[in-house]
């Protein structure tokens, strides 16, 4: 007997590609990128977005994810792309999808994809780290010591074992401010995306290496922005601009 193949017509083709920016807030910062992917596929079905599917026995909706923030960190600037089989109004998609997702995963912005790959528009991130029970003066000193170094080697476990890499060079800038509460300090860093990516926890490791810095509690981390890096203005450009 011959092997079975799917019957019927092939799935309808994609006619439009949409780019989506979303935030992961509050307690939902503990969701992983896989958790998000599952939730998104379900939300797309609930809201009725006419997704384009791959062919075969196990059709998959065409979604591509870009550079998700690590589990446990909040974000105001996460991105993905979907392909759909009809021309849709991006704002309608935004509100329908936002309604279909749990509170704390909030769809901020949907645009029609401009040419080129989304990943090419994500060159750097701005991260905010809020430290409790640390004074800004103390943090400032540590950060200055870090900035003064040329390289700071850190290591972290990857799927294929422990790897060492430099956590200093990719850091394009760092600023310390006092929080509203005097016992609270806020560090903002801009990091260029490299391989492996330097994450806020790597920066933290680097701080502890240059100045034996050990915060009593891990900081609350939020990605504030992600986009192209403009050397001249030293700013992150919104990936949906231009």
């Amino acid at each position: 007997m011959a092997k079975r193949t799917p019957e019927g017509p092939p799935p309808p083709p994609a006619v439009q590609k949409l780019r989506v920016r979303y935030a992961r807030r509050g307690r939902l910062r503990f969701s992983s990128t896989r958790d998000f992917a599952r939730a998104l596929e379900r939300a797309l079905r609930r809201s009725g977005v006419p997704m384009a599917y791959s062919a075969g026995f196990h059709p998959h909706p065409k979604i591509s994810y870009a550079n998700g923030a690590p589990t446990g960190m909040a974000s105001e600037a996460e991105f993905f792309e979907i392909s759909v089989t009809e021309q849709l109004d991006p704002e309608q998609v935004r509100s329908a999808l936002d309604d279909a997702l749990p509170d704390g995963i909030d769809i901020l912005d949907v645009v029609e994809a401009a040419p080129g790959a989304l990943a090419d528009r994500l060159e750097a991130s701005r991260w905010q780290m809020v430290f409790h029970d640390i004074e800004s003066g103390e943090l400032e000193q540590v950060v200055q010591a870090f900035l003064a170094a040329d390289t700071v080697e850190v290591s972290r476990m990857f799927k294929r074992g422990r790897k060492s890499f430099d956590a200093r060079q990719p850091v394009l800038g760092a600023r310390v401010e006092a929080g509203e509460d005097p016992r609270c300090a806020i560090l903002t860093v801009v990091v260029r995306h490299t391989t492996p990516a330097v994450r806020p926890d790597d920066v933290l490791t680097a701080l502890s290496l240059v100045a034996s810095f050990a915060p009593p509690r891990p900081p609350l981390v939020t990605r504030l922005a992600q986009g192209r890096w403009d050397e001249t203005t030293a700013e992150i450009i919104d990936p949906f601009d231009g």
Binding site: R45, R46, S47, G48, V49, P50, E86, Q87, L88, D89, Q92, V93, A96
Partner: peptide, 14 residues
Amino acid sequence: VLGSGKQTMVREQA
């Protein structure tokens, strides 16, 4: 009605 939500999103209709 599964998928009918798309009516509100399709461009011409909007």
